[in-house]
Design a protein around this nucleic acid. Structure first.
Lengths: 195, 195
DNA sequence: ACCTGAACACCGTTCAAGT
DNA sequence: ACCTGAACACCGTTCAAGT
């Protein structure tokens, strides 16, 4: 019988290091998004080479550290309290939650931003998982005729990228609300606007 | 008679260094937006301390290096070929030009991005000059009743921030067009949309 | 297989010493 | 006044040597 997990089996010490690096990284990056990789390795009690073995680039580490948070965000897109809403409202509500998440976890914004970077082959699973969550909500609105059909989930992700340039220490809520209104309004079909 | 220029008079050698650093920086940053300050100082034939004396932070240098390009962009907002257009079209056309500029000069995007950063007191003259250019176009559309009156130029600058996350090496034009349409559509008043 | 940690080339930044 | 450039503390990254 092979392992039920799809992930390749690691040696026990490697797995333990992997987990410890991640938990330390989550803490360190939340405290300071610019925390150095060397400092994280040291705090995790591993050599610098070990960190690089597991996470070849900084983005890999950041993305992995916030995988859980991002997954929660993605899961929310298909949760009852979102899907019960009319499509356009659902999309807007989900973006609100996204803003909340980003603003309260400094390091998370870096992870989300990495997913919005342009060069495609450098975009990882976060990009994929976020766009699929957006696609879910977007397509529902498109099929209902509320949202324009000529825009992709990638477009929408780029359009809401302003969320990670807000200042968490400021009074960002009114501005986020105005701009999300702007984007969601732009997403609506002429028919939906007229209604 | 004092100097006609508002800028404080510098010693001749200081002025020469200042100018040379800027011209070298423009070239270096255009070639590689991540060029190091030390390498720019060396290429300009000055000590590192001299560069820091003139430009206390990297953003100061980047902003100064692209001042001329940004000014051209800003001037375009009040140029005849823009002001002759209907307000909403003018705004959209100006953004197209903005995208062109950003995509053809790699380092310029960094300068523009610095202007979109959240923390207010770190935003410099580029932010000010860009928002005033946007305000010019925006207010014209607002007074004509074509554009929503509840949005500021700062909002709009944030909303078009996706422009500096496009990949200049890719086929960015169709996506930029879709997203600019989205934003400009969102900016229009209900009355204008119905028309 | 995996880990360690010294070593390397580099970075931003400072500051005593010069002119 | 202004400049130089060595020096400092740090960064990301590598890799021989260990287990």
């Amino acid at each position: 019988m092979p392992e039920p997990k799809t992930e390749v089996k690691k040696r026990a010490d490697a797995q333990a290091n992997y987990d410890r690096i991640l938990s330390v990284a989550l803490e360190a990056l939340t405290a300071d998004p610019d925390a150095s990789l060397n400092s994280i390795a040291k705090a995790a009690g591993v050599g610098a080479g070990t960190l690089y073995r597991h996470f070849p680039t900084r983005d890999h580490l950041v993305v992995a550290a916030y995988r859980h948070e991002v997954q929660e965000l993605v899961d929310a897109a298909s949760s009852p309290w979102i899907t019960a809403l009319p499509p356009t409202v659902a999309l807007r509500t989900w973006f609100d939650r996204m803003a909340q998440y980003g603003m309260t976890k400094a390091g998370l914004m870096e992870a989300l931003e990495a997913a919005t970077k342009s060069v495609p082959f450098e975009r990882g699973e976060i990009h994929e998982v976020l766009t699929s969550a957006i696609a879910l909500l977007l397509e529902r609105g498109q099929q209902a005729g509320e949202l324009r059909a000529d825009l992709t989930a990638e477009d929408v992700l780029l359009a809401v990228g302003f969320l990670w340039r807000l200042d968490p220490a400021s009074d960002w809520r009114p501005q986020a609300a105005r701009l999300l209104d702007l984007v969601v309004d732009g997403l609506r079909t002429a028919a939906a606007v007229r209604a």
